[in-house]
Structure formats: C-alpha cells, structure tokens
Design a protein around this nucleic acid. Structure first.
Length: 605
RNA sequence: GCACCCGUAGUGAAAUGGAUAUCACACCAGUCUUCGAAACUGUUAUUCUAGGUUCGAAUCCUAGCGGGUGCACCA
C-alpha cells in the first residue's frame, strides 16, 4: 500500500526540477493524529522553499496530479487525498482495505501473518544476536537494579526475536573480586566473634541466601571502619583468584551455587531463560592474557606498577587493566568476555546491557578491544539504561541501602492477592496469577519510559495497578478473553474471513454514522490495531521497548472505551461478528505486545 | 575542575525536526440488575532561561542556570 502511494507521489512531482531530490527518501509518514488520515507526506513543505513557492500552493498542485492518478485507478484502496495544515498531503484508505487489514490480524492460516505471528518481521532474518543482561554477582544480593536490567534486556532480546533474529541470552556474573573477598572476610570475623558456622547444604535455599547476605554485609561494613585490614582482604582476594586455599574453595563452591540457584528462581518468576552463563573467573584469565600480549605490542603500557590503557588518546579516560597486584580489573575482564562469547558461538551482533554508570568504563574497554580485535569490536554494542534509585538515595549493598528483587516481588504479589481476595479462584492458581500481576506491574513501570532515564522508586507509594500500568493491560486482555469465551459458549464463532464491508454497512442499523461512512471500518481502535507491526519495527530499530508499552496502553484504553460504550455480544445482531473480530484482534495485539515486553497474560485475575 | 546524560501540567512520563504538545496519577462530578468497576465519561493545568539554525524547534547549535553519573588499581 505505502509503496503504491510513494510511487504516485514521485510521479506527481516528477516534472518539477527537483524530482531527483526524492530518490531514496522516505516520503510517507504515519500521522500522529489519526484524524489526519492513514498516511501523510510533508513533501510539499520540503520542496516549496527550494522552488520558491508557498508550501500550501505546491501541495495543492501535487494534490491535483494525485487526483488524476486516482481517477485513472492508479491508487486502488485510497479513498481520498487532501491538503491540510501548513501543507501536509494526507491519504485516507477505503473501508475495504481497512477491513482486510483487520482480517489479516486474525489470519493464522498457512502463510498468514496473524495470530501468534502478528507483528513479526524479517528485519534481522537469521542474524545471530547476543544479548547480555541482568548480570548479578554471586555472593551479593539480587537488587531491584537487576530487575531493571533484566526487564530491559529481556524485552530487547524479544524484540530481536520478533524481528527474525536468532537470539541468544547471556548472563555474566562476577564470581571473583573484592565482593567475594569481603564475603569471606566477613565470615572469618563472625566465626571469631560469635562462633558462626557455615551452614549445611541441606537447609532451605532462602536461609542459605540470608546467610550469604549476612556475612557479606558484615565484611563490607566492618572494613569501612577498619581500612587497616586492606592487606587481609587483598590476601583473601588473591586466594579467590588462584584457588590456593582448599578449605575456602569448598565453601566458595557452595556459596556460589547457592547464589546461582537463588538467581535461577528469580529468573523463572521473571520469565527469562539464559542460554549461557559466563563468569569473571574465566574472563579474567583470558583478559589477563590479552592485556599482557597487548603490553608487548604497545597497546597497553605500565604505569605506577599497573598496566593501563591510555584512553585519553581517544578522548576517554585512562584506566587500569591490570592492578599492581597483577590482578585483572573489570576493564581487562571485558576484553576476555568479548573473546569468550565470540569463541563460544560467533555472532553477527552482540549487545551488552548495563546501567549507564558503566558508560565510561565500557567505552574504554571497547576502545581497547578495537585495538586488538577490530573485527570483533565492530560487532559489540553497549546499550545502557538509567538507574533504579531510591527516594532515600543511591542504592548500595555496602551501605545497606538496598531493596532486593525478591522482596519487591513479594510485596507486589501480596498487593495483587489483596486485590483478588473476592475472586473465587483456587489457592494455587491464585498465587500464580498474583505473581504474574506483580511481574507485570514491575516490568511495565520500567518499560513504559525511555530506557536511558532513571526511575526513582518510592517503596511507600509502591507500584500502580491502575491506569498506565501492567495490570491494566492484563485486565484488558482478560476482559476481551472473557467476552470471546462467552461467545464461544453461545455457539457464536469468530469468522473474520466471512465479513465484507457491504454486508456490515447494511447490517448497521444504529443511529450513529454507518461503518462505511467513517474513514474506514469503524474508527480509531481499528486504526491503532493495524499499526502494531510498525511499532515493533521502530522499537527494534531504536532499541526502545517503551514504544511498545506506550502503544499497548493506547490499544487497551481504546478497547476499554469501546467495551464500555458498546455491547459486543448481542443475540441476533448482525454486527456482532464484526465486533467479535475486533475484540479478537485486540486480544492478539495485547497478548503479542505484552509477550514482547516479557509480561504474561493471566487467564483471569 | 574535566567528560557524558538529563531539565515537559502539582507528581510520574510520551512526542521519526511537523499539524491543536499526548498519557497516567492526584483533585472534583458522575456511571455497577447489561459481555468482569484493576474499568468508563466529563473538568483544570505543562516545554528551565537567553540567543541562533529552519518554511516549521520540546527536539538541532551556542551560552547560562539546575540535577544525575563517571573520572587509576571495585564492578
């Protein structure tokens, strides 16, 4: 459709001296305001100054030529074209085209792009795409910042999949480093002070995790008041890296596994399944090797006992890659990680998703990789997001100012249960639904806005279940589903294929405007529904899941208005098949869109 | 101090350089005997300041003010 219109526009401007100017340009827009038609072009406004005429006059000249095309039958499916505003040319499609588009949403038959497939594109057909996100550290807490990274990373990965990409999800975890040293330092302190013992593997996972949290907090806070213990921490840190202490290794392996098991529980709740896990204990070995090689070839240099990369030569910071104790830093490990990932499974493109506080560090690391492996560096991209902050200030596990992901999920689930208490739903299912609602509330809050911006989370106010919220979108689905179920029980089947615009118009004996008299097939709800594939494309191109969230809200609110003003299921009403078709289309779009955001749709709530 | 990011109704956000700046929350007034009121209908209010580029600026450029983050051995 848009191709035909674009060609007609080019033809209409053809005899102007600037026609070559149009080649390869995207001439058609989707007007933001649906009353401005289905497509529009601002070509007259762009060309007018160059031709020395008024935009509105040029627009009218082009319009006349377009109307000739229409009268010759060149633009089948276009109902009318008009000039509006400062010189826009707007195109309105016919009701017939509109109805066909709606029918396409439900079309699951062979080759149909509707149903579960509605919205999929082949933008990245078969391209191998890596997404690394969440990245919590074993021995430390999984806090709400990790929830943010997970929600964003998961939705970006799904956008990749919906664009035809061959997607792999990776998780990178810091199983070595000072935080592990603090953990064992804290354990030693508690053992000596209170006789605390390392728990058995057979106690509940939550208790094991609580224990790890306790010893880490002890270590971190005690060190703050006793900086003279630096050498002790350093020594433990070295043992963590070289695994020279057999006794500690046993505890280390237990602790690491407990953390990982705990994270896995959370991933399950959140709906993420990683394909591969990478560890700093591995990336550090490779990174160290690479930096040492690079030191010989002059990419890195020595300074004050450390090995550094002179980022300042590239407008970046100069940073340490191997510290004076000979241990690789985060920067060196990133080099190792890039290699590990590539060797595991060569990719076309690899995204690392982290909070933006790491922008500078990663920029330096990537610049260093560029010097060593330019081909791999070209395929690596850092996508950063804002931070989830607290009203009480920056979150930090060392300061104890942390909300864990687990407790947030728990609190939200309780709220959902409270809201559901009057529903007659079996206990087990009720809990599962409440959890899905909790995840939806959290994820949507994160995904409704631009990923780069911080979110200030106020635990007192908590998250919303109303209006612009995940549960609102879920609720809209449940409503649509419930009408469709009722229809089915009454033996009314949604047979979109059988609809045609003449019959519908004849059947419409309401007082308002006939379906055919509207722009096409009804109104805004239908027009919004057919834009879903374009929204996904834009979201993928700009790595911006919030376009999806924003769009779904639009769909849901249009549907809820429709629902409130129209009885969908009326016995003997000839328009009911059409209304059910729309309802089904809404359900498809909302379900698919929520899927892209990583949000599940409960059967009831 | 230097670098990067950000300043939009009372609050939280949206807006490929386009048309009357859009949502939600909150406030107020209504709507459950009708397919689920986690909903709907109606009312009020917004682009930090000063210049510039452009047919057209919340958006691009410059300066200022305000906030965040990072800046050598944590990640």
């Amino acid at each position: 459709m848009n191709k035909a219109i674009t060609e007609a526009i080019i033809k209409a401007v053809e005899d102007s001296t600037l026609s070559g100017f149009l080649v390869g340009k995207n001439l058609l827009d989707r007007p933001g305001d649906l009353s401005h038609g289905d497509y529009s072009t601002n070509i007259a406004m762009i060309l007018a100054p160059k031709l020395g005429v008024k935009p509105i006059e040029l627009a009218n000249q082009i319009l006349q030529k377009l109307q000739v095309s229409i009268s010759e039958g060149a633009l089948e499916g276009v109902k009318k074209v008009e000039v509006a505003g400062p010189g826009f040319i707007n195109f309105y499609l016919t009701e017939g085209v509109g109805l066909e588009l709606i029918k396409g949403i439900l079309d699951e038959s062979k080759g149909g792009a509707g149903g579960d497939n509605y919205g999929k594109s082949n933008l990245h057909n078969g391209k191998k795409m890596i997404y690394e996100y969440t990245d919590p550290n074993p021995f430390k807490q999984f806090h709400i910042g990790h929830l943010m990274s997970n929600a964003i990373g998961e939705s970006l990965a799904r956008l990749g999949e919906w664009s035809g990409g061959n997607v792999k999800r990776y998780c990178y975890q810091g199983d070595v480093g000072r935080h592990v040293a603090f953990t064992f330092y804290g354990f030693d302190l508690l053992k000596n002070e209170e006789g605390v013992e390392w728990p058995s593997d057979s106690i509940p996972l939550s208790d094991k995790v609580a224990f790890l949290g306790k010893i880490y907090a002890k270590g971190a806070t005690h060190f703050k008041d006793h900086p003279e213990d630096e050498s002790i921490v350093q020594e433990i840190n070295k043992k963590v890296y070289d695994k020279s202490d057999a006794e500690m290794n046993v505890l280390y392996d237990l602790g690491k596994r407990w953390s990982m098991d705990h994270f896995e529980e959370i991933y399950k709740t959140l709906g993420t399944k990683f394909d591969e896990y990478f560890f700093e204990s591995d990336s550090s070995v490779v990174g160290l090797e690479e930096v040492q090689k690079g030191l010989k070839s002059g990419i890195f240099e020595e300074s004050e006992g450390a090995v550094i990369f002179k980022g300042e030569n590239y407008g970046l910071n100069t940073r340490v890659f191997i510290n004076k104790f000979g241990l690789p830093t985060y920067e060196a490990k990133e080099i190792g990680l890039a290699l590990l990932k590539y060797n595991k499974d060569p990719y076309d493109i690899s995204y690392t998703i982290t909070a933006n506080e790491q922008d500078n560090v990663l920029a330096v690391s990537y610049k260093a990789i560029e010097q060593i492996y330019p081909e791999i560096a070209k395929k690596n991209f850092h996508l950063s997001h804002g931070m989830l902050r607290l009203t009480t200030g920056k979150m930090g596990s060392r300061t104890g100012n942390v909300i864990t992901g687990e407790s947030m999920l728990h609190d939200m689930t309780e709220m959902a249960l409270e809201k559901m208490k009057e529903r007659d739903i079996p206990e087990e299912e009720r809990k599962e639904i409440a959890e899905q609602i909790a995840v939806a509330a959290i994820k949507y809050t994160i995904l409704r806005q631009t990923i780069g911006k911080d979110i200030v989370f106020d635990p007192q106010k908590s998250l919303s279940f109303e209006g612009d919220s995940g549960p609102y979108l879920q609720y809209s689905c449940v409503r649509a589903k419930s009408v469709l179920d009722k229809a089915e029980k009454q033996g009314v089947v949604v047979n979109a294929g059988g609809l045609n615009i003449q019959d519908l118009n004849n059947a419409d004996n309401s007082d308002g405007p006939k379906i055919c008299q509207l722009d096409w097939a009804g109104g805004k709800l239908e027009k919004v529904l057919v834009r879903f594939p374009e929204v996904l494309l834009r979201a993928e191109n700009e790595h911006a899941p919030h376009y999806v969230g924003q769009y779904l809200l639009d769909v849901a609110s249009e549907f809820n208005s429709f629902y409130a003003n129209t009885q969908i299921l009326v016995e003997g009403d000839a328009l009911t098949p059409y209304k059910l078709t729309i309802t089904k289309a809404v359900l498809i779009v909302l379900t698919n869109g929520l899927n892209v955001l990583g949000i599940k749709v409960p059967s009831r709530m």
